[in-house]
Amino acid sequence: MDEEDELLGIAEVSARIGMAPDTLRYFERQGIVPSPRRDNAGRRQYTAGDVELIRMLVHLRETGMPLADIAQFTGADDKVDDPAGFRLELLTAHQRRVQDRRAELDRALEVITRKIADYSDRITSTPELLDRPDCTIAFTVQGDGPLLFLVGAPAGRAGFAALAHELAEQFQVVTHDPRGIGASRAVPEMAAPTPQVLAEDLAALVDRFTGGPALFIGTSGGAVTLLELAKQHPHLVDRAVLHEPPLVSLLDDPDLADRAKAAFAAAETDPQHAVQEFFDLTGAGHHTGPDQLPPTHLDLPQLPAEELDKNRYFLGQMAGPTVFYVPDIEATRRSSIALCAGALSHHQLARRATQALADQLGLPLIDVPGNHVGASAEPAEFARAVVPLLHN
């Protein structure tokens, strides 16, 4: 008998799909899974096709499809004229729900990961300090090997903690909190965190270790900082990997630019609204493949006071100069850089901008794991992908 013709009892099916026999019987009574054939003694006999269908229905249940929808999916052949089209509608609607839920979980996971890294850093290390004329920059060093700086804006030491740990076996990894972020507290009369100012802070930090070139990985606004560093201090850059610099300046999209400006303008008085707008226009919290568009809007939960204060600073002072920064293409061409973007960032602002930059420079855009926050959300996979890019 072929495997496809093999008939299985309920105990065997239960073992294969990880569902108790009583649960299978209950779902059968509710019309959620189809009733199988029975032998002469009344025992259930499942075909391989039955098992695969039940397995799929279990996946639908585990991902939160309402039981009523699953029952409709199962009984479509007897209830509608176009069962295939009806099932497609049910699956498409459920796919949207799962994608929205995944985006919510990704945001929660990012916050949880950042907090774990933050508390771990507080427990295991005290940052070193670099005095600047108008502020103090906090930084942390770990590992041995070639000098590698991880650069973000607004991401700082906490955001890079997991990635730094992955890279510390091969590199001496330096992470720092940009001015106004984390332990690099904003102080009165501190210069605004423009890419030019952040690049000078970074240059001073590099000089703290070596007067010669170093390796860099920059993500999001940190990649923009590295573009300015390469322009002002090219002798410091041995090799730089730029991950998704969100350069609205490179996109011929006036509506997007206007929305970004409006979000930044609202940050001081209504940071919740500013965060919502920036989240929607960037699409950066979503996972989108080549054939997927990020949702135009997804309601964010009310942010706690601490996050609102952070975004007053980030969106109100740092984000605007960063996304509207105009890179010096000729200066960038003279530097050794690689451009990469998340394999799940398609049709999002930062990936579109990075593709535009790659086109101007005549460089390939290299896919790396995850989306815009892949460096923190998938640190091991991200590290494996970017380390080869640090070599010319």
Rank of each mutant, 00 (worst) to 15 (best):
A191G: 11
A223Y: 03
V373P: 04
I123V: 10
E89K: 08
A108H: 14
I116Y: 12
L251I: 06
R25E: 11
R96D: 09
S35Q: 11
Q232S: 12
R185A: 11
Y313P: 03
G211C: 00
D118T: 12
T296P: 05
A319Y: 03
A356H: 15
D201P: 03
K310M: 06
D255A: 14
R102I: 10
F264E: 04
M318I: 03
V197Q: 12
T92A: 12
H235E: 13
E110F: 04
A240N: 05
I32A: 12
H235A: 08
G370D: 08
A11L: 10
L365E: 03
G374E: 09
G218L: 04
N371W: 02
G159L: 04
I123G: 06
T210Y: 12
G145I: 02
A48D: 15
H165T: 09
I17Q: 06
A192N: 14
D238F: 00
L315E: 06
R16M: 04
A343F: 01
A68I: 06
L8S: 10
E200C: 07
V387N: 01
P154E: 10
D2N: 12
G283E: 09
L251E: 04
G49R: 11
G85K: 09
L24G: 04
I17V: 15
A262G: 11
T23F: 13
R29I: 04
L105N: 10
L167Q: 01
Q355M: 03
E381T: 04
T47W: 05
E3N: 11
A191M: 11
T210N: 15
N311P: 10
D144I: 08
